[in-house]
């Protein structure tokens, strides 16, 4: 039988959950970025499933735009990672603690 929409969404949600967990738990900026990529990938999965369920191209068009946005975000994120490594000698977001209240 064909895949029901709920199954596709279930898979997407699981993927999203893993990505979110990675982004919430891991301390390295690199892994935060990886987690966000996984979350966006899950969003793509749900969009394509929705597109199939409603038999219309909108979801896939959104998927394409989201892909480009993900690429742009990752480029900026990685260059900030490089920047932090060069100037602050760290890639761990938890080591950045000079800005804080008293």
């Amino acid at each position: 039988m064909n895949v029901p929409l709920e199954h596709a969404l279930l898979l997407a949600t699981a993927v999203f959950g893993i990505g979110l967990s990675c982004a919430l738990i891991r301390r390295e900026l690199l892994f935060v970025l990886l987690g966000v990529e996984i979350m966006l990938c899950a969003a793509g999965l749900a969009l394509v499933a929705g597109s199939a369920a409603w038999r219309q191209p909108d979801g896939q068009v959104f998927w394409m735009l989201l892909l480009a946005i993900a690429a742009a975000e990752v480029a900026v994120g990685l260059s900030l990672l490089l920047h932090l490594h060069r100037r602050r000698r760290t890639g761990d977001v938890d080591e950045l603690r000079s800005l804080r209240g008293e």
């Binding site: 895949v3 029901p4 709920e6 969404l9 279930l10 949600t13 699981a14 999203f16 959950g17």
Partner: peptide
């Protein structure tokens, strides 16, 4: 969060047809 999200997706499922081709 993962469990809550999955539960929300599961809550409405059951008896649905497969995606159209």
């Amino acid at each position: 969060n993962l469990a809550g999200a999955l539960a929300l997706v599961l809550a409405g499922s059951g008896g649905r047809e497969g995606l159209p081709g």
